[in-house]
């Protein structure tokens, strides 16, 4: 840092952490994550289709819907953007209704 100089011991540790975090990786949610599977080159960082990290695939239904609605992750669920937009209509509350959703046959 050019304009800020650490003084006490905690500040020195914080400055080291800042320097390290800048040189290595940047969290994907700090950038603009494009929407939809055709425009994403997902590099393997765990963020959801909105660019957030909160919760991620907890619970499992959230992960399923993230893959389905936004077609974000190349997972084996129907693609809701183009081919099967009504796939999950019978499943209003996934925690209870997950049995209602069915296989699709392309």
């Amino acid at each position: 840092m050019k304009h800020i100089q650490p003084v006490n011991r905690k500040a020195k540790r914080l400055a080291e952490w800042v320097a390290g975090s800048r040189d290595e990786v940047r969290a994907l949610q700090d950038t603009d994550t494009p929407f939809g599977c055709t425009t994403v080159f997902a590099p393997g960082w765990e963020v959801d289709s909105g660019g957030g990290t909160h919760g991620l695939c907890q619970p499992i239904e959230r992960d399923l819907y993230d893959c389905y609605h936004s077609c974000y992750w190349p997972a084996q669920v129907p693609d809701g953007l183009t081919n099967w937009p009504s796939w999950a209509e019978s499943c209003g509350a996934p925690m209870n209704d997950w049995k209602n959703i069915d296989l699709v046959f392309p």
Binding site: H3, I4, Q5, P6, V7, N8, K10, A11, L14
Partner: peptide, 18 residues
């Protein structure tokens, strides 16, 4: 100026621009 940042309890020296 020195600033004390209670979130981390760190003390930093700032230059005039900062």
């Amino acid at each position: 100026v020195f600033v004390y940042l209670p979130d981390s309890a760190s003390i930093m020296r700032l230059d005039a621009e900062a």
